[in-house]
Design a protein around this nucleic acid. Sequence first.
DNA 1: CTGAAAGCGCTTACAG
DNA 2: CTGAAAGCGCTTACAG
Lengths: 327, 327
Amino acid sequence: MKPKIQDVAKVAGVSPTTVSRVLNDRGYISSKTKEKVFEAMKEINYVPNDLARSLYNKRSYLIGVIVPSTSNPFFGELVAYIENICDERGYKVLLCNSLHEADKEKKYWEMLRRNQVDGVIVVTYNRGLIDKKQQFPAVAIDHYLAENIHVVSSDNFQGGEMASRELIKAGCKKIIHINGDASLETPANNRQYAYEKVMQEAGRTAETYHIPDVAFLESNIDIIKQLFKERPDVDGIFASDDLLAVRTMQYAESLGYRVPQDLKIIGYDGTCLIRSIYPKLTTIIQPTYQIAENAVETLIQEIDGKTHDTKEKTFPVSLWKGETTGE
Amino acid sequence: MKPKIQDVAKVAGVSPTTVSRVLNDRGYISSKTKEKVFEAMKEINYVPNDLARSLYNKRSYLIGVIVPSTSNPFFGELVAYIENICDERGYKVLLCNSLHEADKEKKYWEMLRRNQVDGVIVVTYNRGLIDKKQQFPAVAIDHYLAENIHVVSSDNFQGGEMASRELIKAGCKKIIHINGDASLETPANNRQYAYEKVMQEAGRTAETYHIPDVAFLESNIDIIKQLFKERPDVDGIFASDDLLAVRTMQYAESLGYRVPQDLKIIGYDGTCLIRSIYPKLTTIIQPTYQIAENAVETLIQEIDGKTHDTKEKTFPVSLWKGETTGE
DNA sequence: CTGAAAGCGCTTACAG
DNA sequence: CTGAAAGCGCTTACAG
């Protein structure tokens, strides 16, 4: 059997109350008693039961994190940061990969509630799952969940502008944007709005192709094929994420386009991974660490009962100048 | 306040015992009572407290997963699979990114113990952290933890043979292997042993360069530079993971080597991600899903008290024929 | 400075 | 078929 506080008490010759006090460094305790207790704990290899603690304290120090899938490098990196920051702050992470399935996400929410998490960080659409009586503090990254839910994101508008201007500057005549699922309103849509604004200011026509979200990177390439069929004169593409950018580039090359001579491409996200293995890809770098940090900090503040004036926080992006938009 | 079982009991006009019985579908209960209870639960939006349940049952349905970092696509993918399989089986995942830091890993082990996890899946070196009285069931992936710990991996020897033979078949004269940290014995070392065996059988000299593990992909490239300086005649490289393969290839190209004409390269892992964005890279595909599935199943069996005859399970790999080893 | 008692929310023998 | 009581391992007023 795992040793419990009573066992420690017996060995140390004190009451359970005293052991608990030592454990929590609470109230006055003679240093002699303290020492006895610590020795007893070591002797029987005691470790407190956090389940029991959490039950009494109504505080689990558990945070639920819901992402589509850590198999996507952006989410994998984001989750790694989130978890490590949580760990530094004394919180533990219950991981949920929703695979873009509303059903799965719904079950995860209930699971998190049952497990008494102190709060949740959500990086998925959450199709209306949160609207009623909110059970616990939540912070969203790059998604609007509900009126009162804090959302953290990169400056998607700035990123969209940067990307679009980069293509114009590189001399592209026919610039097309490829974006994700169009059916839901997310901060990431600002990338598209910025693109449209820049195109308009430059007297161009904006045109966006949408790729539906799919689990595990297996997104079909049909939309990309359609794009090149309908717009063979395309010479600039702003893809809303790097994987999409790379796959579009590959398809274009298979069609005979040379990048960057015939076609210039810029992506979005700029994960460490992509910059490491695809440094040639021009892209917009999201400040992923800052996003993770702000999400965790904001959530912990809400857990601690502090309210926030601002319900939205945005971090500036930066340009990674590769070779896919020319020299 | 969150509703508890007592509140449900009050609303339904029964005792807490009865509510619990309905909840657990245990013992005989009239269907009329059952219905009343379910209605009451719905009415007050009741959800059971799993902390309290786990405390009593001494079963948390919590599994700890320790990986270096989900920011590495192999681990990101592995963790996604593990978590989803756990979810299917009714288990929840407490995620730990150890960043290859022994200290951090040690703290995670204690944290998991405090949180009463039912078991742990480890994908890190665990430098002797587990040897003494093992606290709970554990399964390792690609690492030897201790005598009695079950380990799951891809058939590293087969993979090493495949990779080495592929390079020989492609006509390479001077084949070099780049591997990870040499200081610890892991199943992945079989990749190197197989390479050495194949080289010997072919009358070649085996030569391996080791790259120390580093967190977050920031591994220095010094060893690679050294390799090309010392062995400019290298014309075949077997890299022990795909990221390493890609980065080596990039450095070689910057030196003027053409791949595959002057230099042929083969990697290892073959994640969905790499195959999607780097289909040209020849690599050995690990059966990641099967590894994840077997690890979870084995762990759950151990949790359920079933013992295993075999303490090691290996799954066959396959070759992804890209273009970096020729046509 | 220390201990006995009650309670966190649940479950399970034990009665009836 | 249903309920009162005790207990999972911990913590915290309340006494002393």
